[in-house]
Design a protein around this nucleic acid. Sequence first.
DNA 1: ATTAATTTTGACCATTTGATTAAACTAAAT
DNA 2: ATTTAGTTTAATCAAATGGTCAAAATTAAT
Lengths: 203, 203
Amino acid sequence: MVSKIENTEFKIITAARKVFLRKGMDGARMQEIADEAGINKSLLHYYFRSKDKLFDRVFSDTFKSVVETINKVFSTSDTLETFLENFIKGYTSVLREKPYIPNFVLHELSRNPQRIVEYINTTNFDKSRIISLIASEPDLNVRPYDPLQLIVDIIALCIFPFVARPIISGFLFEDDVEAYNSFLEERTQHIIDFVKASVFVQK
Amino acid sequence: MVSKIENTEFKIITAARKVFLRKGMDGARMQEIADEAGINKSLLHYYFRSKDKLFDRVFSDTFKSVVETINKVFSTSDTLETFLENFIKGYTSVLREKPYIPNFVLHELSRNPQRIVEYINTTNFDKSRIISLIASEPDLNVRPYDPLQLIVDIIALCIFPFVARPIISGFLFEDDVEAYNSFLEERTQHIIDFVKASVFVQK
DNA sequence: ATTAATTTTGACCATTTGATTAAACTAAAT
DNA sequence: ATTTAGTTTAATCAAATGGTCAAAATTAAT
């Protein structure tokens, strides 16, 4: 059995995440979060002193989960080829589960850029490991490239369909949700093919 | 000589654009826009009835300019190869001039997705022309691909470094602005190489 | 059962903020 | 010079909003 405090705190966090993710820090209302959680507004301030503190909690949790996901995918790969496949597959599948996260994180980034340094430092993200993994295998089969550019390439290709969803779904597919979904399904393999075709020298 | 009304309206629009782009609709304050324009807050309501109307004006102007830019680049290309180069070069150079636009548009998209359909319809964006251009040249030198996927690929590769700027600049380059800028400079050519290597069969 | 501590609520406060309005100012027209 | 239309400002409003506080309700301890 869960204690009352844990239960209420969970309800608040869940509700706050839902509202903040949809509306961002500025657009969210404490009353809306309280309603979503089915509790009195004052309770929000009882558990978290202020809106800022509550948002901090939600944001840092979300951001941390993103970093951990990325880290996990990175750590389960050895060669460049398996890494590409694992990362792209793992990352896109997480995104499809939580499609709101990219916009949430990116918007908060532009609203409060300096804060991310703190958040990143609370995580144990190993940058050099990733770079060395991507930069490895100086092989005749591999086109020379800047590992940092490639990292940005891959993440861009994976994330963009979600941050630009309304344009893609609404304009490119004229609000045909089916079409958009199958586009996403095919996209994972497309990105893998696209990146591989570019990185590896074709024979 | 400019008339009073045009002058004031221009000052308001300019100030509003600056504030809205930085803070978004929810985060922006009418007082801040008035201060930025050096006028009384009531004048904002005299020229534009409400905050919504003012934002609408700024957003639709911005969005329209983006679409026009893209259209222009599209119309000045004939072959697939020249299109790729022209589009990537043109698009990245516009982005470097106005790096705030992507975040602004994307955030508003998630805040108010249904509104974009109206905006897009006010522009004369020719979707089929672009698709046919990219889908053209069924050539032995061209790997088979879905033109829509390729469109998203290219735009993603171009835009992402700007929407994720704080992460790239702050984390990947540890706030070394020089490094981030040279990353951007090299990136245009990198994207061209990256996409070409993937699209065209290597000999 | 009583007391004590914790949790939850409703009423309320102070501030912010978009918006209004009437008055003041400006400039052109007669 | 006076009128008139257009522009700008200061004062102010009403609603929204984050936050506080004391009282009520619930739970745990003695």
